[in-house]
Amino acid sequence: MIEALDIALFLVLIVAAVLALVAKDLLTAVGMLTAYSLFVSLLFAGVSAVDVSLVEAALGAGITGLLLIAAILATTRRSEPRPDPRRRYVVLPLVGLFLALMLYAATGLPDRGDPDAPAQLGVSQVFISQSLEDTETPNVVTSLLADYRSQDTLGETLVILTAALSAAMVLVRRRDKDDHDGHGAGDTGHGDDHGAAADDSTTGNTAEQAADDGAPVADRTTRTSSTPTAGDGAHTGGGEAR
């Protein structure tokens, strides 16, 4: 791979990641994450990992963004500021430490494509040389995933299906008529209402939103049980999303 392109891609990658973190508008953040995935998939393609690249482009740059946008439309579009700004004085050194550790560990890694790397000396030699003979499959990645290491794939598929079923169990609720706990109103209003309130309530609210199941359900109950204006609001939100 061309080295300059490599470096440029990494720089764009870091910029996209930082922008996704900084963006106040969550739709912008999703767009940045999607761009991030796209550039990661280009990098994968650059090191000849075409299978991973394809999955990353389809999943990361494609449907993940779609699902995130769907989640945003079901909850809220604005990201809340951190309740306690002092938090960064704890988090930033930790992140720096982690980064330093990773960079230090990276110096001990074998070069890309090194034939003497530990990963190349074990069973992978057998897989690579025997794949065509054993399974009539020229693409070693496929024969690895679906034959030599098919138990991993079995577990992986189970995980995906379980995740989808869990999401369905959490999000599909019977639409109880009196499920109001004031949270749906808090979604739009508590930013300015409780601006001067104690820190406890604010963190409680964000924690609930992060739990990812309280907010959509509350939002849905308000949407279905209230007047059509709520539905119209959701609809215009959808228009903006596109």
């Binding site: 699902l67 769907a70 439309l73 079901a74 999401a167 369905a168 999000l171």
Partner: peptide
Amino acid sequence: LIFDVLTD
């Protein structure tokens, strides 16, 4: 399934 439950 995930998309359908997310979009209600």
